[in-house]
């Protein structure tokens, strides 16, 4: 493409969109380091005066359930990522590389079911998991999230496998390798960028998922972070300094992962959905 000189208006637009994007997050962080008097001050404090870490200390000492919820999100998110990568990797490989007659219809089915509104799943999943004893268990929510996010993972991974040269597999077939061995020893080592991108996106989706996490974890000790923080406010009080602080703690892992792996995530999203 012909190079054009970057124009000042470009930088103005970029700065403006960055400001609009970052402002709510910055404001949240600023709220979390204000004293209670600072949070409810008039005229408002745009800049915390004084800065305080008291809200963070208070979360650690007075609201163990909020910390526990962040741990729960980690456990569920990690479990979901592992399950989805293993199962989705195998399915994506078979559907994209084994020239299966049922590959086309299966991919369409997987795409179609991923469009179901989550709330339409709630009554039956709740009843089902209640009978199976899966309510308030990590296994239960991991199963639910895995089913929910497998479709996107299969689509992303199979589109990644599609970019690998087929000759490698043909050579391995000539050597008499079985498909499972080819998948494990030939395909996997070549596809780790695809797995990283898919894994990151699935982890973020699981961390952020709300309706199923809300309904399947009814005990406060088992709730995930978004649900625990949403349900934290009491009926009459809305302790914004605590809510802001807990929210900061719950989004920092996600924003850090996003910042570190921004290229992989953009690549994964554009490859999986753009097609």
């Amino acid at each position: 493409m012909l190079k054009r000189r970057p124009r000042p208006i470009l930088y103005v637009l970029v700065a403006l969109s960055a400001l609009i994007s970052f402002f709510p997050i910055i404001w949240l962080i600023l709220t979390s380091v204000k004293t209670q008097a600072g949070v409810y001050a008039w005229p408002p404090q745009y800049w915390p005066d004084p800065f305080t870490a008291k809200n963070y200390v208070a979360i650690f000492t007075k609201s163990p359930e909020l910390l526990r919820s962040i741990l729960n999100s980690f456990i569920v998110g990690t479990g979901v990522t592992v399950v989805v990568l293993v199962l989705g990797g195998m399915a994506g490989y078979a559907l994209s590389r084994l020239r299966l007659r049922f590959a086309g219809p299966t991919m369409i089915l997987i795409l179609a079911v991923s469009m179901f509104p989550p709330v339409s799943l709630l009554p039956a999943i709740f009843q089902n998991f209640l009978q199976l004893g899966l309510l308030n268990t990590y296994a239960g929510l991991i199963i639910a999230h895995s089913g929910l996010f497998l479709p996107i993972a299969v689509w992303m991974l199979s589109s990644y496998f599609g970019t690998l040269p087929i000759e490698l597999e043909e050579a391995a077939r000539m050597d008499g390798m079985g498909y499972l061995r080819i998948f494990l020893t030939v395909i996997l080592p070549l596809s780790w960028p695809g797995f990283v991108a898919t894994g990151l996106i699935v982890f973020i989706f699981s961390w952020n998922e709300f309706p199923l996490s809300l309904v399947l974890m009814t005990q406060s000790a088992m709730r995930t972070a978004p649900v625990a923080i949403s349900l934290y406010p009491g009926e009459y009080s809305f302790p914004w300094e605590t809510i802001s602080t807990a929210t900061v703690l719950a989004i920092i892992p996600i924003l850090a992962v996003t910042a570190i792996f921004q290229k992989q995530i953009v690549g994964g999203l554009t490859a999986g959905i753009g097609k």
Partner: peptide, 10 residues
């Protein structure tokens, strides 16, 4: 990347 639920609270 933000959770929709926490974004709404924010």
């Amino acid at each position: 990347a933000l959770p929709t639920a926490l974004n709404a609270l924010m």
